[in-house]
């Protein structure tokens, strides 16, 4: 007799639940919409150039980037790509030991207050604006390189690499430390109970278990290196060059876009060429992030 359908009605909780679902859905797809929107915009601006003036061979093999030449404009991006790659390479040589060392120290050795202080400091470092890093490169590192290596100019691959490495290290440290922290303590205790020293335990158990997270930290650092603009513009010397030593000045893809886009006419070949560089960068960073993501997914599944 008490069984009744009178409770089967749409109540407040039901309505709130529906509204929240819709809002969350909008939030979720907006990320996708933005990414696709940006990609479409860049591609559209670039395509005009790609179809009219673009020469694949020239773009990837020539080092002559002379878009403003009035009678013979050329768009060879090789030097810019090598510039970006070399700076990123040096940056990783700097950042990987620093960030992994710091992450292992914070996660495995530091305790209590000193650990918390270190983490806050690392996060603070990550928040320093890139123009400030560029300024440090322009003044301090520049002077140091001139003095130490006795070269005429200190704005070069080495300088930009050091600056970029220091910039990327904090975020890499944070991600690497998260990966180490995700290794359960019971593994550490089991290893130490067997008589492993702290270092044996870290090397044989913790690092292998955190491997995927560490790789993705490094890849995100590489992505950061490819995308960084201001600091590289300031510290690299910004001159078109195929570098043969760390003391050569180079120009990066990003810096080229930033420096030149303001002076081009919308729709011109030069304008389109810069967007083509942008598209190229977009694809590269997308690939790097995708790889990092796949690697991280690997951790969760294992």
């Amino acid at each position: 007799m008490r069984a009744s359908l009178s409770t089967d009605r749409i109540d407040r909780a039901w309505i709130v639940d529906r509204i929240v679902q819709v809002l969350m859905f909008l939030g979720g797809i907006s990320a996708v919409v933005f990414i696709v929107g940006i990609f479409v915009f860049i591609t559209r601006e670039a395509l005009q150039f790609v179809f009219s003036r673009f020469d694949v061979v020239e773009f990837f093999t020539s080092i002559r980037w002379a878009p403003t030449s009035t009678n013979n404009a050329t768009y060879g991006a090789l030097a810019l790509m090598v510039g970006t790659a070399s700076v990123t390479g040096v940056a990783m040589l700097v950042a990987i030991p620093f960030s992994l060392g710091a992450a292992v120290y914070i996660s495995e050795f530091a305790t209590g207050r000193s650990r918390e202080t270190l983490k806050v400091l690392v996060e603070l470092l990550a928040a320093i604006p890139s123009v400030v890093w560029g300024f440090i490169g322009l003044t301090i590192v520049n002077g140091l390189i001139i003095d130490v290596f006795d070269v005429p100019i200190g704005l070069n691959v080495l300088n930009a690499g050091i600056i970029l490495g220091l910039m990327a290290a904090p975020i890499m440290t944070t991600i690497a430390e998260d990966a180490l922290k995700a290794v359960p303590d019971r593994y550490r205790e089991a290893a130490e109970a067997m008589g492993a020293t702290r270092w044996q335990m870290i090397r044989r158990v913790v690092l292998p278990a955190a491997k995927n997270g560490l790789v993705s930290a490094v890849l995100l650092g590489v992505g950061r290196g490819f995308g960084e603009t201001m600091a590289v513009l300031m510290a690299s010397g910004h001159s078109i060059n195929l570098p043969t030593s760390p003391f050569d000045s180079v120009r990066a893809l990003t810096a080229t876009i930033a420096a030149e886009l303001g002076e081009t006419a919308v729709g011109s070949d030069h304008y389109g060429a810069l967007f083509t560089l942008g598209l190229f960068l977009f694809l590269i960073t997308f690939l790097i992030n995708l790889t990092a993501d796949v690697v991280v997914r690997g951790i969760r599944n294992s």
């Binding site: 593994y187 205790e189 130490e192 067997m194 008589g195 492993a196 044996q200 044989r204 158990v205």
Partner: peptide
């Protein structure tokens, strides 16, 4: 060295995230 002389088995099994072989070879390698 003290701990190497004492084997411990915990309440909840802790297989190290290594292969079966490496789990057992862990202490001898140490």
């Amino acid at each position: 060295a003290l701990r190497r002389q004492i084997g411990v088995v915990f309440p909840l099994p802790v297989g190290l995230p290594l292969t079966v072989y490496d789990n057992v070879a862990f202490a001898p390698r140490l």
